[in-house]
């Protein structure tokens, strides 16, 4: 019987992304296998407060915002929908904590870690690079640290998140089956910043 082998969606493009990266200008790379748990519940119900208490931070209620809850990250995905993110392997624990907090109220807690992978885009050219395929205003005045948005990047549905920090760092959450398309686009879009012509 064949041995079952797992690899992240962008493992076959790791070299491409590394070669397209320009140190201190624009750096691209996959952060594989992050924990992602989809959470849906009534934002005005008592269960929302219980979930907030369990996470250690209230659920973000303003569109396009996220909160840091300990070593977890909670992204607003819709008026009754959030994405809870964390390091690899946290899903079972997060799912059971959130499910417990629901206390049987109407809601949903689903491990969706396999749905998307994370492409990190970092460096002073990050906004300009992303804006080649995404019309959102990513200037820190309108899209500052902690801001997130679901939108289109290179015609692909993504969730964008600006990380906290002094230099621009974005996480692009992309569906696993679209990740290699996005990596190909990214390498092409990054070509002008580097010495290497990725189309050659």
């Amino acid at each position: 019987m064949a041995e079952i082998r797992g690899e992240s969606p962008l493992a076959p493009r790791a070299k491409l992304l590394a070669e397209a990266s320009v140190p201190d200008v624009l750096e691209l790379g996959e952060i594989p296998f992050l924990t992602q748990v989809a959470l849906r519940l009534d934002p005005e119900g008592a269960e929302a407060a219980r979930v907030g208490a369990a996470l250690g931070a209230p659920l973000p209620l303003a569109p396009g915002t996220s909160v840091v809850a300990g070593d977890l990250l909670v992204l607003w995905m819709g008026p009754d929908e959030w994405l809870v993110m964390g390091e690899q392997g946290r899903a079972p624990e997060v799912v059971s904590a959130l499910t417990r907090s629901l206390e049987g109220e109407h809601g949903a807690v689903v491990d969706v870690s396999g749905q998307r992978t994370t492409l990190e885009v970092a460096g002073p050219r990050a906004e300009e690079f992303l804006n080649k395929g995404c019309p959102l205003d990513l200037h820190p005045f309108s899209f500052g640290p902690g801001r997130c948005a679901q939108t289109l990047l290179a015609r692909t549905e993504v969730a964008l998140l600006r990380r906290h920090g002094t230099t621009p760092v974005f996480w692009v959450l992309v569906r696993s089956s679209f990740a290699r398309h996005l990596a190909g686009w990214a390498a092409d879009a990054a070509a002008e910043y580097g010495a290497r012509d990725t189309l050659a």
């Binding site: 569109p63 819709g78 948005a149 679901q150 289109l152």
Partner: peptide, 12 residues
């Protein structure tokens, strides 16, 4: 008056 779905965004 018409309906729209924010399909690639919040899906509402």
């Amino acid at each position: 008056g018409e309906r729209w779905l924010h399909a690639a965004g919040c899906r509402r």
